[in-house]
Amino acid sequence: MRTKIVTGSFALAVVAAVGGGLVGAGDRGERAGHDRADVAPATDARYRAACGECHMAFQPGLLPAAAWDRVMATLDRHFGDDAQVPPATADAVRDYLAANAADRTDGRRAAGFGSPGAGSATSLPRITETRYFSGKHHDVPARLATGNPQVRSFANCPACHQRAEAGSYNEHEVRIPGAGPWHD
């Protein structure tokens, strides 16, 4: 019981900190004259806890609903990892992703991320294999991404996009570790 309460208050503190950070980031963005976030931030606490442990909790607006469904259907074989969560959590996460998916919302980048990727029908869908993503990153050499020990994967959005957690992917906020700000 004691552990439960402590974990609970921990979770609250984390949510408060994350929420505060997002609000703060939004304020700064507006003051600096930036557009609103490219994709709505992932605010659902259950989603953040279940899907933000091994990588950033990707914003639901980064994939279409059908792709999220396929990811949620095979959490026991998740890109070489076991990402299973209790059934009640899985249901809540599935609903949250479906309701906020790229093809169910009208954010600035929704049309881009909402269209199907080039990936095969058998492998799991990836944000990093959508045509939109590839189009935006084809100038970024592998040496700076997968070959970069401080990045390792194109799925590591926050390594390069300073405000990725807030759903902001503006190319002027890109800073690649070991390579500095991006100029194209």
Partner: peptide
């Protein structure tokens, strides 16, 4: 994280309060 590149906070409770709790 070897695959995703995500930063993992230290596991030792001596430096990471809340670990192993």
């Amino acid at each position: 994280h070897a695959t995703t590149g995500k930063i993992i906070e230290p596991l030792a409770p001596a430096v990471s309060p809340g670990r192993l709790s």
